[in-house]
Design a protein around this nucleic acid. Structure first.
Length: 168
DNA sequence: GCCAACGTTGGC
DNA sequence: GCCAACGTTGGC
């Protein structure tokens, strides 16, 4: 897949990961040992391709709460392990089991992320929509269901400005 | 390879 | 809870 976004000088890229907080919230991440988790359960090919092919060590991630009150970017994380097979697809008892994926020929992938910051105040979907500089941001475009989305360097900075914190 | 039916996502 | 948008499936 062609990379849609431009890498920063450091080569670092930026992403937005969606999660329903009832399933996995940023509080879950805060409470993980080492504040690190594997990002499992992505079952969409476009998102899979990002996880498998594009996301690099040190890339930055917005943690977005979907289907939530409020819907918001609630913090940031960094990629600490690049794409590898999503083992939850191999387990028949698992919610995300997929019989078409197996260890010899894995269909689904995940990365590991570690918490960087919990925003002191979430940047809500309404905040994003109200910000002229973010009018092209994928997450606020109608029908943008993709659960792993590229974010531009400018968007990364702007959202931090709205959050009132320095980007790390 | 087309496309209708169906299932899911996720904002509203 | 509704439903539009979108992705996947499967018959042909």
């Amino acid at each position: 897949m062609a990379k849609k976004q431009t890498a920063s000088k450091s080569g670092r890229q930026y992403w937005l990961f969606k999660s329903e907080p009832e399933a996995y919230s940023i509080t879950h991440l805060v409470n993980e040992p080492s504040k690190t988790t594997f990002w499992f359960g992505v079952r969409n090919y476009q998102a899979r391709n990002f996880l498998r092919d594009s996301i690099q060590l040190g890339d930055r991630v917005f943690f977005y709460h979907s289907n939530a009150n409020p819907m918001a970017i609630v913090g940031t994380a960094e990629v600490v392990k690049t794409g590898y097979p999503d083992h939850t697809a191999f387990d028949p008892k698992h919610q995300y089991y997929d019989p078409k994926s197996d260890p010899e020929s894995p269909r689904w992938f995940m990365v590991d992320i570690r918490l960087l910051q919990v925003f002191p105040k979430p940047v809500t979907r309404d905040d994003l929509k109200a910000c002229a500089d973010l009018s092209d941001m994928m997450v606020i475009r109608p029908g943008a269901r993709l659960s792993i989305q590229p974010v531009t360097a400018a968007e990364w900075q702007t959202v931090h400005r709205l959050a009132g914190v320095k980007a790390v």
